[in-house]
Amino acid sequence: MNTPTDLKYAASHEWLSPDGTVGISDFAQDQLGDVVYVELPEVGREVKAGETIAVVESVKTASDIYAPASGTITAVNDALGNAPELVNSGPYEDGWLFKLDVTEEGGELMDAAAYEAANN
């Protein structure tokens, strides 16, 4: 499992970078299987930590994506519209989902070591 140490992780498998970028973990994309569609939030939407904000659909299932922090959506990864498989091939690079202007982090975020321990 690839778990970058500079990110924070939610128990629901979202990651949050210091600059507010959000995606799903390598563990999550592996569990989902081949991603075939991603429903992203609207830019400008204000969200609260823990709120359902997006959906990732795979050949196996659909999975809700929760905001790991409160804030305002400042960008979405439009490339996922034509290439949702980027979530599988690069969950921490080209497969990011959206960016937040974070006003408050969710209280349950874990560092990489705690996230890995929780998922082994």
Rank of each mutant, 00 (worst) to 15 (best):
A54S: 10
K99H: 12
D94K: 15
D30G: 13
D34L: 03
G90F: 05
D78A: 11
A49Y: 02
V59L: 08
V38M: 03
G44K: 01
K8N: 02
L100Q: 14
V87A: 00
A83L: 11
V102Y: 08
G95R: 02
T52C: 05
S89A: 12
P41Y: 13
F98M: 12
T61H: 05
A49N: 13
A54G: 15
L109Y: 05
A49H: 00
D94M: 15
G95C: 00
K8M: 08
F98L: 10
N82F: 01
I24S: 11
V102M: 05
K99A: 14
T61F: 10
Y115S: 06
A69I: 08
V102Q: 04
D30V: 09
T103A: 11
D26V: 01
V38Y: 08
I65D: 00
E14N: 09
E51S: 12
V38N: 01
K60H: 14
P91A: 06
P91R: 04
G106V: 04
V59H: 12
S17L: 04
M110Q: 09
E93T: 14
D64G: 09
S17C: 08
M110E: 04
V76D: 05
W96C: 00
V55R: 02
S70F: 15
K99I: 02
V102P: 02
E14Y: 05
Y115V: 08
L86F: 10
A69C: 13
Y115F: 12
E14W: 04
E14K: 07
I73W: 11
T52F: 02
G71R: 00
D34W: 10
Y9F: 13
G33A: 13
S63I: 02
E46R: 14
V47F: 14
L40N: 09
E85G: 10
E105Y: 10
V87C: 14
A62C: 02
D19F: 01
I24N: 03
A49D: 13
N82P: 00
D19H: 03
A67Y: 09
T74N: 01
D26Y: 06
Y9G: 07
Q29G: 02
V22R: 02
L32P: 06
V56I: 13
D26W: 15
L86C: 12
G50C: 09
S89N: 13
A54F: 09
Q31S: 15
E51L: 05
I73L: 09
A28G: 03
L80N: 11
G95Y: 04
T21C: 10
D34M: 07
G44P: 03
G81S: 03
D26H: 06
P68E: 07
V56M: 11
W96T: 04
E108P: 04
E108L: 10
M110G: 03
L100D: 05
K60E: 13
D101T: 12
P84H: 01
Q31G: 06
V43T: 13
Q29T: 07
